[in-house]
Simulated scan of single mutants.
Amino acid sequence: MTPGEFEFLKKFLKERSGLVLSNDKQYLVESRLLPIARSSKLETLSAVIGVLQKGTNKALETDVVEAMTTNESFFFRDKTPFEHFNDTMLPGLLERRAKTRLIKIWCAAASTGQEPYSLAICLKEAQARIAGWRTRILGTDLSNEVLDKAKAGLYSQFEVQRGLPIQMLLKYFDQKGDLWQINAGLRAMVEWKKLNLLDSFSHLGEFDIVFCRNVLIYFDQQTKTEILARVAKSLPEDGYLVLGAAETVVGLTDAFKPVPGKRGLFQRNVAAKTTAGPAPRTFATAGLQR
Rank of each mutant, 00 (worst) to 15 (best):
S156I: 08
G132E: 10
L228Y: 03
D199L: 04
A188M: 12
K224T: 03
Y172Q: 07
I103R: 02
E226N: 14
K193S: 09
E206H: 13
T88F: 13
R134D: 14
A120N: 06
E115I: 07
A152Q: 11
K149N: 08
S118A: 11
A150H: 01
A184S: 15
G132K: 10
G132Q: 10
D87Y: 12
V215M: 13
T112V: 10
P91T: 13
R96F: 03
D208A: 05
D148R: 13
H203I: 03
L228G: 03
L216C: 05
L119P: 00
T223P: 01
S156V: 04
L164D: 00
K194M: 12
L93D: 00
R213Y: 09
A188N: 14
A126P: 00
A108I: 12
N86G: 13
K104G: 03
Q175F: 04
K104T: 09
Y172T: 04
T100Y: 07
S143T: 06
K224E: 10
E115L: 09
Q167H: 15
K151C: 06
A98Y: 04
A128F: 13
L169E: 08
S143F: 06
L164Y: 06
N196R: 00
V190L: 04
N196H: 08
E226F: 12
L216S: 05
A110H: 06
L216H: 11
R97N: 03
S118P: 01
V210W: 03
Q157Y: 07
L198F: 07
Q222W: 01
F211Q: 02
M89E: 06
R136C: 11
H203S: 14
L142K: 03
N144F: 14
R187P: 07
I130Q: 12
K193F: 06
L228T: 00
D220E: 13
G163S: 08
A150P: 01
E226A: 13
Q175H: 08
Y218V: 05
A188H: 13
V210N: 02
K99C: 09
V160L: 09
M168K: 15
